Structures are given as structure tokens and as C-alpha cells.
Amino acid sequence: MKIPAAGFLKAVGKLNGDPTRVLDLAGVRIVHRDRSALYRAVGELLADPHLRVVRYVDRFAAPEVIAAVGAPANGPDAWGPKSNGYRDLILICRWVRDEPAAAPVLEFFEVQLVTERVAAIMVREHPLYAWRRLIIAEITRRGRPARECDRAFLRACEEWSRRWYACDDAPIGCADRHVAS
């Protein structure tokens, strides 16, 4: 469950101040052994008659797949890895009901699917991600260009993240070798 402040910040920062556009207040992360298991699970979710997928973002997708399906290459719904190499698959789902709910319910929720390797790297990489977000928020708050030291730190964080996520398909221990270098 996203904390209320995070939902508010997302609405203000990314969604033109419209809180009704925040569709991922509730969510679940499902970790799969590998990409083939992940895509099998996606097929099952897409086939579930009680769910309607309203947004599908595949950051595992190869460039030729992205071009073939006409998926966005830029922006928050962009397909393909993020600039730091992070990959996941996001489904924003909506409950499909045969009858009205007896009580108010969250209508939309996020399903995030990752591989075991990405999940393991996320634990290590998340502090860098948090620092990047904090610095970018401070630069935005100041309303002036980033200082050289900020840009250098952001570049270094991005490079470390990229090295770790490049190991997603590599043998066990790849990320550990990068940490030591």
C-alpha cells in the first residue's frame, strides 16, 4: 500500500495535481524465478475474467518488441529498461464486478512482476534510488539548475545501478564483482 504522502506527491508531481489519476495506491510485487515464468503469470492475469488491465508497461521488452507493438519509448509508461537498467513489468488492473460492491473498495491496483535476480538487486540498489529521488526533489524545490556536485552524484548513482541491473541475466556473483570494483 502506497503511503498517503507518496500518492499525494505523485498526483502533484506527475499527474497535474489530479489525485483521481493515481491508480497504484494498492499493489503487489510478485517475484518469479525467471522471465518465462513471469510472462506465463502475465498470461494468466490477462485471462482472468475478474480483472481488466488498463495499463501494461513492459520494461523487460526488447527494442524490436517495443517497435512491433508501438509501445511508448519515453515517459512514465515507456517500455524497455529504465535509464539505470531497472526492469519490471507493471499491470494496472481494475476489478470487474458482476454486481456493485457492498462497501467502498479500491477499484484500481498495481501488479508489479520482477525476476528473482531483479528483486535481489533492488534490495541493494534501492538506497541509491532513494538518494537520487531526494536530490532531484531538492533541485526541483530550489527551482534552479543542479550544481555540478549534484550532477556528478546522480551520474555515479545511475552508473552503479546500471552495473548491478546489467547482471540480471548474468551468473550469480556478477553484482558482487561490480560492488568490489
Rank of each mutant, 00 (worst) to 15 (best):
P81M: 07
R59T: 08
A26T: 08
G75S: 04
F8K: 00
E99S: 10
V53N: 04
A137V: 01
P19E: 09
P100N: 11
R117I: 05
A120K: 11
A137M: 04
P104K: 03
A103T: 08
G75K: 08
E159A: 15
H178Y: 14
R141T: 02
A119W: 00
W164M: 14
S181I: 06
D24R: 08
R124P: 00
A170T: 03
V114C: 09
V114I: 13
E99P: 01
G85H: 09
D48M: 00
A61E: 04
I90N: 12
I92G: 02
V22Q: 07
V111W: 06
R144A: 03
E116N: 11
R40M: 00
A11D: 06
L113T: 08
E138T: 07
Q112K: 03
A47G: 13
A101F: 05
M1P: 13
S181Q: 13
P100T: 10
P171G: 02
R162H: 06
I135V: 14
G80Y: 04
E110G: 02
C167G: 07
I66H: 07
P49H: 08
V12F: 12
E107W: 01
W164Y: 15
G70S: 09
A166K: 09
A11F: 02
N16W: 13
A67R: 14
H178C: 07
G17V: 13
Y165G: 01
E116M: 03
P145Q: 10
R94K: 14
W131R: 10
E110C: 03
M122Y: 07
D24S: 03
N74Q: 14
A41H: 11
G70P: 10
A47C: 10
N84R: 00
I136L: 12
I139K: 07
I3R: 13
D77Y: 13
R87Y: 06
K10C: 07
G80K: 00
A166S: 13
R147Q: 10
V42G: 08
D176C: 01
C93M: 08
V28C: 10
R155Y: 13
P72W: 09
